[in-house]
């Protein structure tokens, strides 16, 4: 196979990406919604898919990479099955979110830079404000919001997940 045809066969497989791209009329201005949907599909933004998106939209891959790395919502690495997002907004901060963060990292043996467990079960990250300040401090596990947390109650949630995972 020549490089070109090999390339084509490979790209032909990006059926879902193609669907997303045509939904947005291959418009470079829709790059952000396109990346959001791609991430929804693959749970992260794989490099080869981004290259494909760039080529399809006729914009430089470096520009797509620039956009993907600018916004906190996008991730170029796969995340864990349970993404624990800890709010570090002002309200949560003054009510002790940092203690919860440290407790979670310690429990899962993670650091702020290496924040996904090797078995891909947990990712721990902080977000600036989830806007649920009335319930501070708040953590969100995948879609579920948990308010008025303490380090103990947060660890309890993690333990519950461990328990549930082991039962299954």
């Amino acid at each position: 196979m020549t490089a070109a045809t090999e390339n084509q066969t490979r790209f032909r497989h990006f059926a879902k990406v193609c669907e997303i791209l045509s939904k947005h009329d291959h418009m470079p201005s829709k790059l952000i919604p396109i990346l959001q949907e791609v991430q929804e599909e693959y749970r992260y933004l794989p490099q080869e898919v981004l290259t494909f998106v760039a080529t399809s939209l006729d914009i430089p891959p470096a520009q797509v990479y620039g956009v993907a790395t600018f916004y906190a919502h996008f991730t170029l690495k796969p995340k864990g099955k349970y993404v624990i997002r800890l709010c570090d907004g002002t309200a949560c901060h003054v009510r002790g979110s940092n203690g919860i963060h440290q407790a979670l990292l310690k429990r899962l043996n993670l650091t702020e830079t290496c924040n996904t467990t090797p078995d891909m079960l947990f990712t721990v990250e902080t977000v600036s404000c989830l806007g649920a300040c009335g319930l501070a401090p708040v953590i969100v596990i995948n879609e579920d919001v948990h308010g008025q947390m303490t380090p103990e109650s947060a660890l309890k949630l993690v333990d519950d997940i461990f328990l549930q995972e082991n039962v299954n």
């Binding site: 490099q47 981004l50 290259t51 760039a54 914009i59 430089p60 891959p61 470096a62 520009q63 797509v64 990479y65 620039g66 790395t69 600018f70 916004y71 906190a72 170029l76």
Partner: peptide
């Protein structure tokens, strides 16, 4: 980007992590 129409390097990252790099 503007003169050569290529865009081989661009900004990536944000804030203190901003840098100018080739794609990925």
């Amino acid at each position: 980007a503007e003169i050569q129409g290529i865009g081989a390097i661009d900004f990536a990252g944000r804030g203190a992590n901003s840098c100018v790099v080739p794609a990925f």
